[in-house]
Simulated assay, not measured.
Amino acid sequence: MLTRKQHELLVFIQDRLDETGISPSFEEMKDAIDLKSKSGVHRLISALEERGFIRRLPNRARALEVIRQTDRAGAASREEPGTVVPLNRKSGTPAPANDVVEIPLHGRIAAGMPIEALEDQQMLPVPAALLGAGEHYALEVSGDSMIEAGIFDGDFALVRRTEEARDGEIIVALVHGVEATLKYLHRDAGKVRLDPANAAYEAQVYDARDVQVQGRLAGLLRRYH
């Protein structure tokens, strides 16, 4: 059974898809069900996805498709909100088609700031063309250790979430479980070397067990002032 907020959000998404063929933005969903932040909407969307009511369509804006509907009558039909009604796939809502997606923005990637600690996340609109398959998140870059790779302070690093990476790739590495950094990855004889892209900085070498890959760099966004 869905919670009341999950039910309200699912009905709102259904109605908007029926009306326009495009699912609502996170801001519209936040206002429609009276939430304080878009991170709350993100959690509800994730819960609905896990329970099989919706799915996210890759590389499309507002990429939500309703798989199972709920009974809108609620108490009037003597059923709790959230009762499942199978969706007729032949007459189902057409999939939205656009070129912007929203991904979690976890905060600044800086020494002493593990990704997992950044719970008060926002959502960042990103051109879908910058992302490939898989789950992505964004981090705001702090510092100049990667400037020779074209990555500058204040850029937004678009990261594909993964625990696997090849030598020479730019990764988000969690060191000793407490420090997140964006560097080139190299492995050698049980060691991991994290290379900067700035001649003013030295490589960092650790035991392999002390470094966890948190994702691979997929793209960058930059603001011009």
Rank of each mutant, 00 (worst) to 15 (best):
A138T: 07
E50A: 15
H136I: 05
G132C: 01
R89C: 02
V101A: 15
L131W: 10
A149H: 05
T162I: 01
E116G: 00
F53A: 09
N88R: 09
F156N: 01
R43Q: 12
A117Q: 12
G40W: 05
I45M: 12
R89W: 13
P96E: 10
K90S: 14
R43K: 15
N59D: 09
V141N: 12
H106T: 07
A63G: 15
D99C: 04
M146N: 00
D31G: 08
E164N: 07
R89G: 01
A128L: 01
G82F: 08
L139S: 07
L57A: 03
D153S: 04
L48P: 02
T70M: 07
P104A: 00
V101Y: 04
V141P: 13
P94D: 00
G40A: 14
K30Y: 13
A138N: 05
T93Y: 08
A75E: 11
T162W: 00
L105I: 08
T162Y: 01
E50Y: 04
D120F: 08
G40K: 11
E65W: 00
S142P: 03
P104F: 05
R55K: 14
D71N: 15
G107S: 06
R160N: 03
D34Y: 14
G150E: 06
K36I: 05
E102P: 05
E119P: 01
V159G: 02
H106Q: 02
A47I: 04
H42L: 07
K90M: 10
G112R: 07
